[in-house]
Each structure stands twice: as structure tokens, then as C-alpha cells.
Design a protein around this nucleic acid. Sequence first.
DNA 1: GCCAACGTTGGC
DNA 2: GCCAACGTTGGC
Length: 158
Amino acid sequence: MVNHWLMKSEPDVYPYEQLETEGSTHWDGVRNYQARNMMRDDMKIGDLVLYYHSNFKPPHVAGVARVCKEGYPDHTSWDSSSKYHDPKSTPENPRWFMVDLEPVCALKTTVPLQAVRDNPACENMLLIRRGQRLSIQPVELQDFDTILSMGGLSRSDL
DNA sequence: GCCAACGTTGGC
DNA sequence: GCCAACGTTGGC
């Protein structure tokens, strides 16, 4: 069973276009337990991901990605030269996990956050819930399809 | 730049 | 276990 997610990335750091250029990436640097648990325990190969650009004007969903490697230790956590270094994480006892993503396709038209807010069909999405800051969120199937269609795509385009 | 909301840390 | 202080996220 394929699950659906939304993952936030700052386009200044790693935009969707770069994922397309590079072909895949490991989602390192997540240092939040809830997000870690989802990557470690719940995200499976083939799961589909809405790729969201945060800290951008306007913030928006840019594309669709797919999980191509399931949760494994985030090696940047024990790399003392990394900005994501966590002295409490070691190769023997890793504290942080990541998944790998590959690109599926860019939306034909990006979907701004305000458009999600304005669409009553999206009213239950975590993305627009007050105070919601999680950088990885589960997305219901129907919400995923709604965003896809707002972005000018349908399932058969994936 | 501001600030609301939330998460983490650490003293007690 | 409580909670104040602090740090981060991320929209505006």
C-alpha cells in the first residue's frame, strides 16, 4: 500500500529542480523526533511525496517525489564537520534517520500555500493547520490527488 | 524583521 | 515531573 507525504525543503538549500538534476538525494539533516520516526518506521519504497518549498515567496508545492530507499541512519549526525552534527549520535547507536527520494515530476503549475488554504477540499490538511511546523507530514490520498489536480496533473501523469 | 507556536534543555 | 528559558520554524 502506497502512502502519501509532504516534505518541506527550502529552495535556497535544496529545490525540487536540484532533485531532478541529481536524480536522487538523501534527506539528511532532519532533527525532529516525530519526523525521524516517520522516516525510520513509516515511509516505504514507492511512497509518493509532495515536495514543498518553504521559506519562499510564496511558499508552494513544487513537485512530486518518490521514496526510493527506506529509513537508515543519517551519517551527517556523527560527522563533526557537518552542520547537522549531533554528539549524541554514533554509528553504533544512531539517533537520526533519513530516507532517499527520487523525482517523479514537477507540477505543471506550482500550488501556492494560499491556494491550499482557499480550497475547501484541503481544509483538513496538516499543512494549513495552525502552528503546524513539521517538516514531514502524512497526506491523505484524496488531499494528495487534490493538490495534484491543482497543479495541473493527474495520477496517470505520475 | 516580527512573532506565534512548538520543541528541547536543564535546574530543581 | 515541572516549568522557565531558550532555540527553531516558517508565514507574513
